[in-house]
Design a protein around this nucleic acid. Structure first.
Lengths: 353, 353
DNA sequence: CCGTTCCTTTGAAGCGCTTTAAAGACTGGT
DNA sequence: ACCAGTCTTTAAAGCGCTTCAAAGGAACGG
């Protein structure tokens, strides 16, 4: 029970109390070879007694290494939140600590990264950084850098991402398998991720010889964009029987918009999201979506860092994880009679790939 | 343009390049009085040239102060995310940096706080900490601690929170004003916050002489709990004409459940949430809710810290902000004829506990 | 030309901890 | 009793930066 409410105890204090040198105490506390069992015990007791906690700042400085991995995220992004939790676990299991730095509307990635570097992080894990690839590359030349979730052409930065195109293509397969022939896609606007997913959609259709049926509506990455897309879909001359949204948030907005317009899901229209976010798992939402397996991504990211740091890997590495379609209750075969119930007819039944 | 891809440049390096001592460089870089304009310029140029960045670890150690404020949050809580963004702004404006530490399912608040302390934070801002008040109090005796969002009896910890009871009471006032007489409340289970809001509900009713009409249904803090509550409400013998949910997430679940059951909001039933979260602001949701003003809370929290740190305040302080009702489109006068209009049928689906 | 003042700049002492060469303390063999 | 060989413990040199007393110079009045 510490209590000497003055300053916090220092190495010096516990050394004095035991009657040994600070060096000995340090060795004991770090579990290094040397000190005898007896000394160990006394030191440990004294440290506990004083409530001693090493000053990380000082030990980082003295130690060659900081054992700190910096993670840049957008704290308002729920997907990042999930990932960070997993990163923590993975990093800790490897004996590293995670230092967080978020971007905010008034704090860009440059600033967030600087904070991390100034704190002596040995490596950086960047979640969906918006920085230009050239900057990331030069960063990667200074220290190990892993980018999660974004495709990136770079000679120095490791990338962990999932095959977004495959994910969407899988969704297309699933829908086609159910009998859908008019499948729309609510786009995610700019960004490499959006490009990949759109590509997956188009490629998926092509696989089934349905390239002509492509129907891409403007979208975005938030609920709002989803509800806008809903309006556009409902207004279409020949509405689709299924729609794939850029991500779950957009899908949620889409669902909301449809529901309010009296369209039933999945009876009238099937909806697929992307991310398998917590809200897509709600029983009332129960959205068919594509899971990115954050846990695995986090582990791969930490592994990539460790390989560079501890095993001296230097060549670049890219891990592309295969996303997994999670079928829930927002997808079903199209109604044989009509699309939205207000369309002539659908390309109905059968034809499995 | 640094490039000497060896180690990062140190104070020593820029000093050598300019031909002055490290002391001088340090003074210049910290904008301290002393160095002449000419020297300043040369040092600055050299530093920029070398791409020098001070090693924060070292300077924290050397400096008396760290100018670091630690913030503990739950990274998966969107409300916290909002707050953190604002805290960043407020802290930076005051010349402090914010160090983040999150709790996760496998990382409790004790651990999160230790990380912060080990990093020499001068003060702690804890977002809705679950730690027992006694532990927080003893923490508060060691260093300035501000708790945001949670009521707390403590002799040492500052508290910034909003008057949750008033918030809910205001919602009741609003509904009563619209003509509602049967107003339900979907509870938030355990916790001081939940207690406060429930109290506000009951007190609000009492104010209008409607204490007898209290109708509290089991709830929770997530969408899922909201949808459960929806079921319970629909099954009630005499369904309410309005319902207030513990928070926006629960309200969203509630809305979803109601919508799916064919209940129209606000025509058949008015719904009020709490938090004014981003999703409540979506045009398609447009939820009447209670705003907590995160920006203001963040500013007050940082101000409280500064007062202790820089102005030597020692007596405890509690700031209770008045929440603000944000009326949107999920509330309207009750239909004069009946409650849910389809009670008979809805009630058919058994009564779930 | 010298003593003062006022500016600048520097040297050196830390900040609290790690690390390693070397000193001490023992053990046992001869 | 002496020396090699083992264990323990310590002293001291940093880690990179801040800080401040004190030194060095320039400027100026007498």
């Amino acid at each position: 029970m510490a209590s000497r409410s003055g300053r916090r105890p220092r190495l010096q204090d516990v050394a004095a109390r035991v009657g040994v040198s600070t060096g000995t105490v340090s060795l004991v506390l770090n579990n290094s070879a040397g000190p005898s069992a007896a000394t160990r015990e006394r030191v440990l007791a004294a440290a506990a007694d004083l409530g001693y906690r090493p000053d990380r700042t000082a030990s980082l400085l003295a130690r060659r290494r900081s054992c700190l991995i910096g993670a840049m995220l957008d704290v308002r992004n729920t997907f990042h939140a999930e990932l960070v939790a997993d990163l923590h676990d993975a990093a800790e299991a490897a004996g590293y600590d995670l230092l967080l730095s978020t971007i905010t509307p008034t704090r860009d990635s440059r600033r967030a990264i600087e904070t991390l570097m100034d704190s002596r992080c040995e490596a950086l894990i960047l979640l969906g950084p918006d920085a230009p690839s050239s900057r990331l590359t030069s960063l990667g030349e200074q220290m190990p850098v892993v980018v999660i979730g974004r495709r990136l052409r770079s000679t120095s930065v490791d990338v962990i991402r999932s095959a977004d195109d495959h994910g969407v293509a899988a969704a297309v397969d699933h829908l086609v398998g159910l009998g859908h022939r008019r499948i729309a896609y609510a786009d995610g606007l700019r960004g490499t991720i959006a490009t990949d997913r759109r590509t997956g959609y188009l490629r998926g259709l092509r696989t089934h010889g349905m390239a002509d049926a492509a129907m891409v509506v403007a979208g975005g990455q938030t609920e709002l964009s989803g509800s806008r897309a809903a309006r556009e879909l409902l207004a279409a001359e020949e509405p689709p029987t299924a729609v794939i949204a850029f991500n779950d948030r957009a899908a949620l907005g889409l669902l909301d918009g449809l529901l309010r317009a009296g369209v039933r899901v999945p009876e009238d229209l099937s909806v697929v999201g992307y991310d398998d976010s917590p809200s897509s798992q709600l029983p009332q939402v129960d959205l068919t979506t594509v899971s990115q397996d954050t846990r695995r991504q986090a582990e791969e990211a930490v592994a990539a860092v460790l390989e560079r740091l501890d095993s001296g890997r230097t060549e670049r590495r890219e891990v592309v994880l295969e996303p997994r379609l999670v079928v829930r209750r927002t997808t079903a075969p199209p109604r044989t009679t009509a699309g939205l119930g207000l369309v002539s007819e659908a390309g109905a039944e059968s034809t499995e790939p």
